[in-house]
Design a protein around this nucleic acid. Structure first.
Lengths: 341, 341
DNA sequence: CACCGTTCGTCAATCGATTGCCATCGCCGA
DNA sequence: TCGGCGATGGCAATCGATTGACGAACGGTG
């Protein structure tokens, strides 16, 4: 490969130290404390002095040193965002929305994934806590008391989960599931299966529980089928169990497993939606790609991310302790539901 | 919604301050500096003293305050990762690999996206630079000189791009493109199109250039077709232009535009691969989902992320200035190539 | 017994910014 | 003329950890 030009590229020691408020103070002939006030207590100083200092700061290209500021104030200006699996497309919109809101308010986001491991999640959360002002836990796999412990050291908000005493932002899965089952019922389905997600997932519990209640209420039979992992592979591996269950439709924990199952059906020549109807959950990127396109239940992901961050922000200012209303989910009708065989 | 239990949840002021080395010092009867050495200069102290201090630290649940450490040392222990668009699935594996390597070495990653805007990218990069030890720019849309300026303030590595004097980690697109064009040629294609990506993308230039050279060398005609955005929408919008170009195959800048085009073909009843063959680029999540599954060229994304971080890390220690060899791409044969009409 | 070289631990300065408290100044009204 | 007040800006302590310089204690040696 090409050799980088070591002669012109600044090596570590050669980079000039960034200007500090002391440099500005010297340049303008005031004291450092005055500079500090000029820069973040507008109005506290004489207008001309403030102007002079701001100009000097601009001229020197001054940027505040967040570390130095964090020491006396205890505020780092960063928020931690912890998700269960970065490579799950479901987090796209959520992450992006969170990032947008955060940067609008001048915060920066530190971002980590726990790879579906509770141990790793706890360790990461603790590590992050030392350097952030607050933590947003999305789809946490921790136990309630662990989350409560984390919450006792720094502000913390959970998304897609409800924990006693912890501020939360959650979707309301009911409308989406209700409509989905309604359609299935209209299409003649009477025996359906729920293809489950991780047991440690609160969201999984919610989805199962509501599907169960509604199915029972409408006199449909419903069974729960385990999956090994909430991934495409997990969905594919469940194919045998789904077939054996003798149902005409399955509601999947998420689109990933639905997609895996769908593909496996195609590979085994099982017609979807002719012989089996499939409904996913989340409406992730790619759900509309296969043939048949996946019918699914859309999560308000961007809203979840945005509200999560806002809630965390107010939590950090010692704000309200009132949870917002749950955000509604919506049924997305595509091609993977058909009349019962 | 449920009311959080404000009585038990610690409000901001109530959270107890985390233990410091001073607390440990008091507890063990030594001075703070001794504690500092016990914790990060193993061997410098008497073994028993060190033990005693470590035990006390563990007992108090001591965690070092990264901000306080950053001040004297100038090292923040965090790395910045800047991508052009978080919602592009292409970054999945890269981000995850980067995150893994970073946390293995005890670094944390701050993560931001520039939403395809050079201005936003520059602003974000500058903002991040004040709080990280180094920056990884992935698919930067900045101009060379802007990148060089950024590099003069803190260590910086670019991925998917080559800039004079800047350490870089790049893929070698040649093998993948060569094989792809070979297959197209074997299938009888003589007139092909390149569906272009953003002009500010170095990677786009590479892909076009190599496709061009190889096509010319093999006596295939090749034209460049512009797209409005490197997204599925961008690909769909290019449908008319692709049809008008009278080619039998198109190589797309990335899988997103390929997927968009593919879907549009299906919606307009244009048979793929019967009447048009399509080859994507990147092999993102979902490329195998449609029917026909997208034939594409795989990027070594995880390796790019891992090497990028490693390179940045050695750069931060003032390490080598030698770029690694480019990582090879590979042709992924699926279903969207067929014999020329 | 005096001297010397290690070993171990403390002192104190330092990183960059914040902030409570105080000093000064000018101006006003009594 | 004096007291007082608001506006303005400086002083110095502080946040938590690091680190070079220094000193005390100790064991070994001639």
């Amino acid at each position: 490969m090409e050799q980088s030009d070591a002669a012109t590229r600044p090596r570590n020691g050669e980079r000039k130290a960034p200007p500090t408020i002391y440099d500005i103070a010297r340049l303008t002939g005031v004291s450092p404390s005055t500079v500090s006030r000029a820069l973040n207590k507008p109005g506290r100083l004489n207008a001309q002095t403030e102007r002079r200092i701001r100009d000097a700061a601009a001229e020197l290209g001054y940027r505040i040193n967040p570390m130095a500021r964090a020491l006396p104030t205890g505020k780092t200006g960063t928020l931690g965002l912890l998700v269960s699996d970065i490579t799950n497309p479901v987090y796209f919109d959520l992450v992006r929305a969170a990032e947008r809101v955060a940067s609008e308010t001048g915060m920066t986001i530190v971002f980590a994934d726990s790879q579906e491991s509770p141990e790793l999640e706890r360790a990461t959360a603790e590590r992050l806590q030392t350097s952030v002002d607050g933590l947003l836990l999305v789809g946490s796999r921790l136990e309630d008391h662990q989350i409560q412990e984390l919450s006792s050291v720094k502000p913390l908000v959970v998304v897609n989960r409800l924990v006693e005493g912890i501020p939360a932002v959650i979707p309301d899965v009911r409308p989406g599931i209700t409509t989905a089952l309604e359609r299935l019922r209209e299409a003649g389905h009477r025996r359906i299966a729920y293809l489950a997600g991780p047991e440690a997932s609160w969201m999984n519990g919610q989805r199962w529980q509501h599907a169960f209640e509604i199915a029972v209420q409408w006199d449909m039979s419903i069974v729960e089928i385990k999956s090994n992992a909430p991934t495409r592979e997990g969905g594919a591996e469940a194919f045998g169990r789904v077939k054996a269950a003798d149902v005409s439709a399955v509601l999947a924990y998420n689109d990933l497993v639905a997609l895996g199952l769908l593909r496996e059906c195609r590979d085994h020549g099982l017609d979807v939606p002719g012989r089996l109807s499939i409904v996913g959950f989340d409406d992730i990127f790619g759900a509309d790609l296969p043939t048949p396109a996946l019918t699914t239940i859309r999560m308000p992901l961007a809203a979840l991310g945005e509200l999560g961050i806002r809630r965390l922000l107010t939590e950090i200012d010692g704000g309200s302790s009132q949870n917002d209303a749950a955000l509604p989910t919506a049924f997305v009708d595509r091609e993977s539901i058909g009349p019962a065989a």
